[in-house]
Design a protein around this nucleic acid. Structure first.
Ligand SMILES: [Mn+2]
Ligand SMILES: [Mn+2]
Ligand SMILES: [Zn+2]
Ligand SMILES: [Zn+2]
Lengths: 139, 139
DNA sequence: ATCTAGTTTATAATAATTCTAAACTAGAAA
DNA sequence: TTTCTAGTTTAGAATTATTATAAACTAGAT
């Protein structure tokens, strides 16, 4: 799988989610998905990186809109870890994380690296939506 | 252990943490700790409940200050679960939670009810600070 | 009774996010 | 092609949770 010039692929992908392939969305797609490793970010960090190079700017509102749209479309996963900032993850498979309280960074833990040998039954009428563990670490 | 008129006890407790036993703090202590079961709350809900009865009001700033002071003193535990609101817990023992995405309420899971038979080693130089699981549930 | 550090409070400030509404554009249709 | 329109982008305002500020108040030591 070639990692550059995936533009056509992203156009397809966006169209298949009823999202118009605008230049802003394609730019963000390339930035987020033209990479081999998981990428964890906040809107703040994404905004900085997208708008680093002196090229045409993407507005903060569009960064918010796009991250929301990509999350709804299933291209991104939101990771609930910090009380005052949303984190997002390009790895949409079910998996766990270390969250470093010092650097405020997330690191993937493969799903198989944590084994839950006993899990309680949810209250009646409710079902488990998500069981991903965040292990908080520090120095 | 009698559940009413624990005032003297709270006075001691506060003094032992170098917190003056003001009437606001005692009122909040009584509200939070004069109960047998775990209580989970946000500052918003606590503020409403403390100021429900037409008695003298405790300001929102004091609610924030007190929750912060009680958390630092170890009377309360902060539960990181929601991206835009802090949750607190009168149960300061290590334990797990269900978080209902519909009602936005926490329910305790006793520590022994979840067994982690395999846990990854943290990155070198880092140690695990907290390993409490939040299981997200919904209808 | 006096004094002072700690506390409370109203209010302002901040930070993350969402909303609004006007300008812009992708792409379907004429 | 040009026209048209729903979808999109954008700057800026609004909202929400929280923290900071600074003046008034008070616990409790002296
Ligand atoms: Mn916040
Ligand atoms: Mn927020
Ligand atoms: Zn991840
Ligand atoms: Zn609890």
């Amino acid at each position: 799988m070639i990692i550059s010039d995936n533009l056509k692929m992203y156009v397809q992908k966006l169209r298949s989610s009823n999202l118009r392939p605008t230049k802003q969305r394609l730019k963000i797609c390339q930035f987020l998905f033209d990479r081999k490793k998981t990428f964890h970010f906040t809107v703040e960090t994404l905004n900085k990186k997208i708008n680093k190079n002196g090229t045409t700017k993407v507005s903060l509102a569009t960064i918010y809109n796009t991250v929301e749209a990509f999350t709804s479309a299933g291209y991104l996963k939101e990771i609930l870890t910090s009380k005052n900032k949303s984190y997002y993850d390009t790895n949409i498979k079910s998996h766990h994380h270390f969250y470093d309280e010092g650097s405020k960074e997330l690191t993937d833990i493969h799903y198989s690296q944590i084994k839950l040998s006993k899990v309680p039954v949810p209250p009646k009428g409710k079902k488990i939506k998500n069981l991903e563990v965040v292990i908080r670490i520090q120095k």
